[in-house]
């Protein structure tokens, strides 16, 4: 049986206790909510901690408030299953419902939280392996080694952002609240991420993501398409999150297109958005935008399926996402 390394476990009930515990020794303390990302990583020994702070008992982190006509707040400790069941999410943010209900499997959604999915460690087939396997390849730069085996000439790590929730939430313009003993701040979710497989989050080690703030859903249509091998369990090998605001004539007032699993962060298809914004959402525009969306994607051979095929699928999936929104 694969087992965890030993650690000290703290189970606070208040947010103050959490931030204090985190501030004590941020470098060797980790937060655990659902445990579905951190615990496998610790069992494989590529993440470690002297102290784990369990968020399970922190009631303040849970719950969904608001009805979509104004801002909606989702506690970072809300489970993915709770979000799937939420009527507000289903009706006001159908794309978020699609994204969250596509995460992993029903069992993992009963455990995993929104905050956990947004902070999901970047993934790579050279990294998400056991200690013994990584020893066999001489480790990689994300942990212990000095090479990125996916791109050996590269000075950076190319592990893949694999969150399903983030592309859609960034497209929606969601913001997140970060708390620490030093205080609170709210930043756009998009700014939480950086395109680096190691330093993929911009938050400080002593900060905890506590809330996700969704803007009013008024007029915004959303969808999320996910590409993966199986009907369940699998991480995305491509995610496309789109938020669209159309004018009365059906023209594109505003659009956000975010790609997941193609780089180390959720990736905005800016040229595609620019092509669509202010114009008609006709077949030609969709085709051209889809083609433009392919450029920022950099799928590599570090997950399921051939990278070149995954790259080709960006265009197909963006076109499908846009076409489906047009019809809604």
């Amino acid at each position: 049986m694969m087992r965890l390394p030993s650690f000290r476990l703290l189970s606070p009930r208040s947010m103050d206790d959490v931030t204090v515990a985190l501030a004590d020794d941020p470098a060797s303390t980790r937060l655990v909510a659902g445990g579905t990302d951190l615990l496998p990583n610790m069992k494989r020994r590529h993440q470690s901690a002297k102290t784990l702070v369990s968020l399970r008992r922190v009631e303040a982190l849970r719950g969904i408030q608001g009805d979509g006509s104004s801002e909606v707040r989702i506690g970072a400790g809300t489970t993915l299953a709770e979000i799937c069941r939420s009527d507000v999410v289903k009706s006001a943010y159908p794309g978020l419902h699609e994204a969250v209900s596509s995460i992993a499997s029903p069992l993992l959604r009963n455990m995993g939280t929104l905050g956990g999915n947004l902070c999901l460690d970047t993934r790579c087939s050279y990294y998400n392996q056991t200690e013994e396997w990584r020893e066999a390849i001489g480790y990689c730069m994300k942990e212990c080694g000095d090479v990125c085996w996916v791109a050996p000439g590269s000075s950076r790590c190319w592990a893949t952002s694999s969150t399903d929730a983030a592309p859609l939430l960034v497209a929606l313009g969601a913001r997140v609240k970060l708390d620490s003993v030093r205080g609170s701040r709210v930043i756009p979710l998009e700014d939480l991420y950086a395109d680096d497989g190691i330093a993929y989050l911009t938050k400080e080690r002593d900060e905890i993501l506590t809330e996700v703030l969704l803007p009013s859903s008024d007029k915004t249509k959303t969808t999320y398409l996910k590409l993966r091998r199986r009907g369940s369990i699998d991480f995305p090998v491509l995610g496309v999150g789109v938020a669209l605001v159309q004018d009365d004539a059906g023209g594109v007032e505003d659009v956000s297109i975010l790609l997941g699993a193609v780089r180390s962060q959720p990736t905005r298809a800016k040229a595609a958005e620019d092509r669509l914004r202010g114009g008609a959402l006709d077949d030609d525009a969709i085709a051209e935008a889809a083609q433009l969306a392919r450029k920022p994607a950099a799928p590599l051979e570090n997950t399921d399926f051939l990278a070149r095929w995954r790259g080709a699928m960006v265009e197909k999936f963006v076109a499908r996402a846009l076409t489906s929104l047009r019809g809604r």
Partner: peptide, 8 residues
């Protein structure tokens, strides 16, 4: 239903 292998 949860996975007992990932619950402390």
């Amino acid at each position: 239903p949860v996975l007992s292998c990932l619950v402390l």
